[in-house]
Design a protein around this nucleic acid. Structure first.
Lengths: 149, 149
DNA sequence: TCGGTTGTTTTGACAAAATCAAGACAACTG
DNA sequence: CAGTTGTCTTGATTTTGTCAAAACAACCGA
């Protein structure tokens, strides 16, 4: 409907081709449902995809999300107590802020610079690949409604 | 068997009492099965507890672990792709190193000091309660066996 | 030491999230 | 356009953990 919807599909298709993946309706549809800054779980994605592609199954969504995450086109995060979430922002090692009230996830830039995030003080001989930082707290909305003083 | 087993039980009982929890066999048994530095999932705990307390049920273990975690006597961590793990080291905000090969979890001290771990660069108005850092990589054993060059 | 209250454990059913397997099908290659 | 390869559909299964209610045990006070 938007005038550049075709452009977006072409762009997504190019990303898929670049990753060596076949371009399919399901995969384009999955790309479509992600808005910028959104963190969606498999069920959210399935629900939205099913609206435009009624033959889709939950397993297809799992498969697509898994394939895209493996290819580095999507990032999978698994906050404690929630189903796995996916986001389209990849390539930077940003971290996450999870609201303990409403479970909403926000992006946040790296804390104090890349180096500090990637080098623990004792590494036990570990070969560290990635560091993941999750902050837990109350988002402005939940803080306001929970403590109206 | 060990000469100070009684002492350990007394100590555990004191911790429980201090937290306002009743002292029960199940709870003491759960404390018993944790060795220092170990990270056990609910099923590990159940298996070990069942060896000495055959009437125990899985749900009792979930209940005990939940109660102890709520009381701050145990810490619950939930690494992506694994069941929840519990550890006895509480009170310091240490972090974790997870092996992508064998899923073993190691403790690691805070990266560059408490402050850096608790203040993301943009907080979005969040009231941050805790920060959780997880490092992913290969432990010495897995690095050695996977790449014997 | 003995009841009474309260919190804990047992039992069994249930729910959510994700995975596995096999056949049908569609996208890319030449 | 046909073949090959990878993807999707369908349905069952597994794993992890929760819920609810009744039986039971620990702690308090007399």
């Amino acid at each position: 409907m938007s005038p550049n919807a075709t452009d977006e599909r072409e762009q997504a298709a190019a990303l898929l081709r670049g990753a060596g993946l076949k371009v399919t309706e399901s995969r384009l549809a999955v790309f479509d449902v992600f808005g910028p800054g959104e963190h969606l779980d498999a069920d959210d994605v399935f629900t939205r995809v099913a609206a435009t592609l009624p033959t889709t199954s939950r397993q297809a969504v799992y498969g697509v999300l898994g394939a895209l995450a493996d290819a580095g086109l999507l990032r999978k995060i698994e906050p404690a107590g929630s189903p796995a979430l996916y986001e389209t922002r990849v390539g930077d090692n940003h971290h996450h802020l999870v609201c303990t009230g409403c479970s909403t996830v926000f992006d946040v830039g790296c804390v104090v610079g890349e180096a500090a995030c990637l080098t623990p003080s004792e590494s036990h001989g570990f070969r560290i690949a990635t560091a993941e930082v999750t902050f837990w707290g109350l988002c402005p909305d939940c803080a306001a409604s929970g403590e109206p003083s």
